[in-house]
Amino acid sequence: NLRWTSEAKTKLKNIPFFARSQAKARIEQLARQAEQDIVTPELVEQARLEFG
């Protein structure tokens, strides 16, 4: 299971509600691909840039 830093959680809250669950799934996918067990603000930002 993935842990989220408080900064990453804050960044996730800045994503519009309607896109948040999809973004969260993508962020967690990116973390797993990078073999990380902690979601960082950088991963959230990477996903945000993908979504535009």
Score class of each variant (00 low, 15 high):
L30S: 02
N14R: 12
R32Q: 07
E50H: 04
K9A: 10
L49F: 09
F51Y: 12
T5D: 05
Q36H: 09
L43M: 13
G52R: 09
Q33G: 06
R48Q: 11
N1I: 14
R3F: 15
A31T: 06
T5Y: 02
A31P: 00
R26Q: 07
P16I: 04
L12V: 03
L12D: 00
L43K: 02
K13P: 01
F17D: 06
R32K: 10
P16M: 03
T5C: 03
E28H: 03
Q22E: 12
P41S: 12
A25R: 13
R20A: 03
L43R: 02
R32Y: 07
A25I: 13
E28G: 02
N1C: 08
T5M: 07
D37A: 11
E50C: 08
S6E: 15
T5L: 05
E28P: 00
Q22D: 09
N1T: 13
E45R: 05
R26N: 04
F17C: 09
I27W: 02
A34Y: 14
A23P: 00
E28A: 03
K11P: 00
K24S: 04
S6K: 14
E7L: 08
P41R: 07
K24R: 09
L49T: 08
F51P: 04
A31W: 01
I15G: 02
Q29Y: 11
E7K: 10
K9F: 11
E35S: 13
R32A: 06
K13C: 11
Q33V: 08
K11L: 14
E50F: 10
T10K: 15
S21T: 10
L30K: 04
L12S: 01
S6R: 12
K9D: 04
G52D: 11
L49V: 10
G52P: 11
T10E: 15
D37M: 13
T10A: 10
A23F: 13
N14I: 07
I38E: 08
F18P: 13
Q22I: 12
K24E: 05
E50K: 07
N1K: 13
R20E: 03
A34V: 07
R32D: 03
K11H: 12
Q46P: 02
E35F: 14
A19W: 15
A47N: 03
F51V: 07
T10R: 15
Q36D: 05
S21G: 11
Q36N: 06
E35R: 14
S21K: 14
R26G: 02
V39E: 00
R32M: 11
E42R: 05
E50P: 05
R48A: 13
I15M: 06
T40R: 04
T40W: 04
F17I: 06
T40L: 04
A25D: 09
V39L: 01
I38S: 06
A34I: 09
K9Y: 13
R48H: 08
L12G: 01
N14P: 01
R48F: 15
D37S: 12
R48I: 15
F51A: 07
T40F: 04
Q22H: 09
W4R: 00
L43I: 09
R20F: 03
V44H: 00
I38V: 14
A47Y: 15
L12E: 01
R26M: 09
R3Q: 11
L30Y: 08
N14A: 11
R20H: 05
Q33P: 01
A34M: 15
A47D: 05
T40A: 02
S21H: 12
E50Q: 09
Q29W: 10
L43D: 02
P41L: 12
I15Y: 06
A19V: 15
R48D: 05
P16G: 03
S21N: 10
F51H: 05
L12R: 01
E28N: 03
A19D: 09
E28S: 02
F51M: 14
Q29E: 14
A31H: 01
A34G: 08
I38N: 04
A8Y: 00
Q22T: 12
I15K: 01
E42Q: 09
N14Q: 15
L30M: 10
G52N: 14
A31C: 06
T40M: 04
E7M: 07
L30E: 02
R48G: 10
T10Q: 15
S21W: 09
R3G: 04
E42K: 05
A19S: 10
W4N: 01
S6N: 13
L2F: 06
T40K: 03
F17E: 11
W4D: 00
Q36I: 14
A8F: 01
A47W: 15
A19C: 11
V44Y: 03
W4E: 01
D37G: 08
P16H: 05
Q33D: 12
V39C: 01
N1W: 09
Q29N: 07
L12M: 08
R26Y: 15
V44C: 04
S6G: 07
K13W: 11
R32I: 10
K24Y: 07
E35L: 13
S6W: 11
V39P: 00
E7V: 07
E28R: 03
T10S: 13
A47V: 15
K13M: 15
E7P: 04
S21R: 13
A25F: 12
I27C: 08
A8P: 00
T40I: 03
N14E: 15
R20N: 02
F17K: 14
L30Q: 03
L43P: 00
A31E: 00
K9W: 14
A47F: 15
Q29M: 11
A31L: 03
K24L: 10
W4I: 00
Q29C: 06
Q46N: 05
I27H: 00
Q46W: 10
L30V: 04
D37V: 12
A25S: 09
I38K: 05
A34F: 14
R32P: 00
R32H: 08
A31D: 00
N14V: 06
E35P: 05
S6Y: 11
K24H: 05
T40S: 05
V44I: 07
A25P: 02
Q36G: 04
R3H: 09
E42G: 05
A31Q: 01
E50S: 08
F18G: 09
N1R: 08
A23T: 06
R3M: 11
F51G: 04
K9C: 09
Q46F: 10
F17N: 07
V44K: 01
R20S: 03
L2Q: 02
K24A: 07
L49W: 10
L2Y: 04
T40D: 02
Q33L: 13
N14T: 14
G52E: 15
E45G: 03
K9N: 06
F18W: 15
A25E: 12
S6A: 12
Q46Y: 09
Q22F: 12
P41V: 14
A8Q: 01
A23Y: 11
A25Q: 12
R32C: 05
N1F: 12
L43Y: 05
I38R: 04
N1D: 12
L30R: 04
T5K: 03
L49E: 08
Q33S: 09
D37W: 15
Q36R: 11
Q29H: 09
L12N: 01
A34L: 15
L49Q: 10
S21V: 11
L49H: 09
K13Y: 13
F17T: 08
G52C: 11
E7I: 06
I27Y: 01
L49N: 10
S21Q: 12
L2D: 01
I27A: 15
N14D: 15
R26V: 07
S21M: 11
A25T: 09
A31K: 01
L43T: 04
A34R: 14
L49C: 06
G52Y: 13
Q29T: 08
L43N: 04
I15Q: 02
Q36M: 15
